[in-house]
Lab assay of single mutants.
Amino acid sequence: SGVNQQQLQQLMDMGFTREHAMEALLNTSTMEQATEYLLTHP
Rank of each mutant, 00 (worst) to 15 (best):
Q10S: 08
Q33F: 04
P42I: 15
A21W: 01
Y37D: 04
M31R: 02
Q5K: 14
L25K: 00
Q6A: 14
L8W: 04
M22V: 11
M22H: 07
E36L: 10
L26F: 08
E32I: 05
Q33E: 15
Q7C: 07
T40M: 11
L25Y: 04
Q10M: 13
H20F: 15
L11W: 01
E32A: 10
V3P: 08
Q33A: 13
A34K: 00
E23W: 15
M12W: 02
E19G: 10
A34T: 01
A34I: 03
H41T: 09
A21S: 11
L39P: 06
Q9R: 14
N4Q: 10
P42D: 11
Q6E: 13
E23H: 11
S29Y: 10
E19P: 09
A24K: 01
F16L: 01
T17S: 14
L26M: 13
M31E: 02
Q10G: 05
T28K: 03
L39M: 14
N4T: 08
T40C: 14
Q7I: 08
R18S: 05
Q5E: 12
T28M: 03
Q33R: 04
E23F: 15
T40K: 09
Q33L: 06
V3W: 12
T35V: 15
L38R: 01
A24E: 00
L39K: 15
M31F: 15
L38D: 03
R18C: 06
E23N: 09
V3G: 06
D13A: 15
L11V: 03
Q10H: 09
S1V: 13
Q9H: 10
N27D: 03
G2K: 11
L38V: 04
Q7P: 04
L11H: 00
E23I: 11
Q5V: 12
T30G: 05
H41C: 08
M12T: 06
T30S: 12
A21K: 00
Q10W: 11
L8R: 01
E32Y: 04
V3C: 06
E23D: 07
L38N: 02
R18A: 07
M14K: 05
E32V: 05
G15Q: 03
L25C: 04
L8D: 00
Q5R: 13
E32N: 05
F16D: 00
M22A: 08
E19V: 10
G2W: 13
A21R: 00
N27K: 12
L25R: 00
M31C: 05
L38M: 05
E23M: 12
G15M: 03
A21F: 01
Q5S: 11
G2D: 10
M12V: 12
L8E: 01
H20E: 07
L25W: 05
M22K: 06
T35I: 15
M22Q: 07
E19Y: 14
S1W: 05
H41W: 13
V3Y: 10
L26W: 07
A34E: 01
T17L: 14
L26V: 08
E36Y: 08
E32D: 08
M31L: 15
H41K: 07
P42E: 12
V3Q: 06
G2Q: 14
Q10R: 10
Q9W: 11
Q9V: 08
E19L: 11
S29L: 10
T35M: 15
H20R: 15
Q10F: 14
A21M: 01
T30P: 00
G2M: 14
G2H: 13
F16I: 04
Y37A: 05
L26I: 10
M12D: 00
G15N: 04
T35Q: 15
L26Q: 09
T40Y: 08
N27V: 10
M12L: 07
E19N: 11
E23Y: 15
S29M: 10
A21L: 02
P42S: 15
T28H: 05
T40V: 06
T30I: 02
E23A: 09
E19D: 13
M14L: 11
N4R: 09
L38H: 03
A34Y: 02
M14W: 09
T40L: 10
S29K: 12
T40Q: 10
V3E: 06
S29Q: 11
A24H: 01
L8K: 01
Q6K: 12
A24T: 01
L25E: 00
S1L: 11
Q10I: 14
Q10L: 13
M14T: 03
T28E: 02
S29G: 07
N4V: 09
F16S: 03
R18D: 03
Q9L: 12
N27Q: 08
S1H: 13
M12N: 02
S29N: 11
L8V: 07
T35G: 04
H20Y: 11
Q5I: 13
M12G: 01
A21Y: 00
Q6I: 12
V3F: 11
D13T: 10
M31V: 08
M12K: 02
A24D: 00
G2A: 14
Q9Y: 10
T30Q: 02
N4W: 10
T17E: 10
G2N: 12
M14A: 05
L39E: 14
A24Y: 01
V3I: 12
L11N: 00
L11M: 04
Q9T: 08
S29R: 09
H20S: 12
Q7H: 15
E19I: 10
N4P: 08
G2F: 12
Q5T: 11
N27L: 10
E32P: 03
Q6S: 12
T30Y: 02
V3L: 09
Q7N: 14
Q6W: 14
M31S: 02
E36A: 09
L11E: 00
Q33N: 04
R18N: 04
Q5D: 10
T40P: 03
M31K: 03
T28S: 07
E32H: 05
S1N: 13
P42Q: 15
N27T: 06
E36T: 06
T28I: 02
Q5M: 14
Q9K: 13
D13E: 12
S1K: 12
A34W: 02
Q33T: 04
E36R: 08
M22N: 05
T30E: 02
